[in-house]
């Protein structure tokens, strides 16, 4: 029974690794972003994934720049966040772009 379950897990792991390829599901594909924002996105992805998945901010539905300013400043105070003042500026630059995209999508739909 134990061997059977272990083998099933190994086969399942091999299958999902093989099928998933290189697509990046957790966050965004940096190549889909304007070149001047890719480095900002990497800072956002690294700092904001320390305590939670990137789905939290990306799927939050929040598109208000003022909200993000207050929210990111609050996250900066989380212990061990590693979010410096310059990181805040770069994270907000990415979020402003992402929020504008989301607003445009909503308006189009």
């Amino acid at each position: 029974m134990i061997r059977l379950v272990s083998r099933a897990l190994v086969v399942l792991l091999a299958a999902v690794v093989g099928c998933s390829g290189a697509r990046r599901v957790d966050g965004l594909d940096p190549s889909s972003l304007p070149p001047d924002l890719r480095a900002d996105y990497e800072v956002f992805a690294h700092r904001c994934s320390k305590c939670h998945t990137l789905a939290r901010p990306l799927d939050s539905g929040i598109t208000n720049d003022q909200f993000w300013r207050i929210y990111v400043t609050r996250m900066q105070r989380m212990p061990g966040s590693g979010i410096s003042d310059s990181d805040v500026a770069r994270i907000l630059r990415f979020l402003r772009h992402y929020s504008a995209e989301q607003r445009a999508k909503k308006a189009a739909s």
Partner: peptide, 16 residues
């Protein structure tokens, strides 16, 4: 263990 992100925000977790 491993996790498989089915889509952003939805994950399968398996572990021994």
């Amino acid at each position: 263990g491993f996790t498989y992100a089915i889509e952003r925000g939805l994950r399968l977790k398996a572990s021994t």
